[in-house]
Design a protein around this nucleic acid. Structure first.
Length: 158
DNA sequence: GCCAACGTTGGC
DNA sequence: GCCAACGTTGGC
């Protein structure tokens, strides 16, 4: 299916904050040194959306990033079997969704951020993605990349 | 700054 | 192939 998958990626804000991704416009997501996280990176396809979590200092999901390239080798580990992808900013959350809030939300008790707390790249079920987005009082920008226009609902607005 | 969780390494 | 030791992540 053309519809992309959903992920959660982590970064310490002092190392690479979401605001910096917005300033840069695009960055190569490198430095993942965990096999499972690497395999998750390799499963990404362009257009996939990632919740962007600030670990340590903020402990909150602060925005949505978008995968801009196919996965490739991680240039920061030449000759080794790691992976990277290009990421770009999509939208910053109106309100950060804190870890405390997530933990206090029963519908998110199986959110991989909680159940796989030490993994820096985790797949995220679409319902978790949408709920966190809603909790961040944020909507995705309309018609991002290569998706067909949404169909008008029959008998909708005048 | 401490500590729990857990992935990774290396000895046997 | 098991398991203890070690290192790292990340919350508190």
């Amino acid at each position: 299916m053309a519809t992309g998958r959903y992920w959660l990626i982590k970064s310490e804000p002092s190392v690479y904050a979401y605001a910096r991704l917005e300033a840069d416009g695009r960055t190569e997501w490198t430095g993942v040194r965990n096999f499972e996280a690497r395999n998750n990176l390799r499963a990404m396809t362009p257009g996939d959306l990632c919740l962007y979590y600030h670990s340590n200092e903020d402990k909150a999901v602060v925005g949505v990033a978008r995968v801009l390239s196919k996965p490739g080798p991680d240039p920061t580990a030449p000759g080794e079997d790691w992976a990277s992808v290009d990421m770009g900013p999509l939208v910053a959350f109106t309100v950060p969704v804190t870890l405390a809030t997530i933990k206090a939300t029963p519908a998110l008790k199986d959110f991989p951020l909680l159940t796989r707390s030490r993994l820096s790249v985790t797949p995220t079920p679409v319902e978790h993605f949408e709920l966190v987005l809603k909790m961040g009082q944020t909507k995705l920008p309309k018609a991002p990349a290569s998706k067909p226009k949404p169909k008008a609902k029959p008998g909708a607005r005048p």
